[in-house]
């Protein structure tokens, strides 16, 4: 049994968002963080490791500097890292990305009792698509938005969080779970974890490693294999401050009605 966590390095949106003249994100000039939901996925994997003593692996697709993020996650306690990195993979949208990561997971080997955990969505694209698409491409069951995970043998019970309630769903391993931040409180790195992190195995999967996997085909990866094309990204102009009217009397209602009328929202 092993737990595989998929994580993404994203721009730190609490800093400045830099956009290149051509409208795409200037990722190189922005600070990066581990995608917040993915940290919950890491914690979920570590909690299962604490309970079952199973092996844990972290996988990311990204440029070589993403190694530091993998080491950080290994310093939290994950045992191994896999960095999927290659020029051929650049420019991938969610479809191509999940194709490549799924190929990476096949290359790693997914056993009958394995669990794959992803964050719900990445804060840079906000699509929430990659996790579910990986499961589809691997042909395994999935449950998204996990707010609680229970394991009983090969049966996984997940509390699936929805806006106005939740569902309790069961599935068999191997399976994929995407989790929400309410799932847990992620731990910090530990000092002993830090001094082990750089000794733990980290493997790079490049195009050559994966090219013979059936999922990898020049038509389905990279910019060329991506059905989605980004036309432009930009920082939206700030909305002006809102107006707050106080009071529940007739005059306030009239003032409100007049504002709405002036804007032709009501007549």
């Amino acid at each position: 049994m092993k737990i595989v966590v998929c994580v993404k390095q994203v721009p730190d949106t609490s800093g400045k968002v830099a956009v290149k003249p051509d409208g795409t994100l200037d990722r190189a000039s922005m600070l990066t963080i581990i995608n917040p939901d993915d940290v919950n996925a890491v914690e979920a994997a570590l909690a299962l490791k604490d309970e079952y003593g199973c092996k844990t692996v972290v996988v990311t697709m990204g440029p070589p500097p993403a190694e530091k993020m993998l080491r950080t996650i290994m310093a939290m306690g994950i045992d191994e890292g896999i960095l999927i990195s290659g020029r051929e993979f650049g420019g991938s949208d969610t479809y191509a990305t999940s194709q490549i990561i799924a190929a990476g997971l096949v290359h790693l080997g997914i056993d009958d009792d394995d669990i794959i955990i992803c964050g719900r969505q990445a804060i840079d694209g906000d699509t929430a698509q990659v996790g579910p698409q990986i499961a589809e491409k691997l042909g395994i069951p999935q449950i998204s938005y996990a707010g609680d995970i229970k394991k009983d043998g090969n049966t996984i019970t997940v509390k699936r969080m929805l806006e106005d309630g939740y569902m309790m769903i069961q599935m068999k391993t191997p399976c994929l779970i995407t989790c929400v931040k309410e799932l847990n409180q992620p731990r910090y790195m530990s000092t002993y974890g830090i001094f082990e992190a750089y000794q733990k195995p980290l493997t790079v999967y490049d195009y050559n490693t994966l090219k013979d996997e059936p999922l990898i085909d020049p038509e389905t990866i990279g910019l060329q294999g991506s059905p989605t094309n980004i036309l432009v990204s930009f920082t939206p102009p700030l909305k002006g401050a809102g107006t707050i009217l106080e009071g529940a009397d007739m005059n306030t209602c009239k003032t409100l009605a007049k504002i709405l009328d002036d804007k032709h929202i009501i007549r």
């Binding site: 910090y188 790195m189 530990s190 000092t191 002993y192 974890g193 830090i194 001094f195 082990e196």
Partner: peptide
């Protein structure tokens, strides 16, 4: 204690973090 703040420059063989004085 849990995160290993109390054994930073001591060897792993005695339960420490295996770090150094600078850390």
């Amino acid at each position: 204690q849990r995160y290993g703040f109390f054994g930073i420059p001591y060897a792993k063989e005695y339960g420490g973090a295996g770090g150094d004085v600078l850390t």
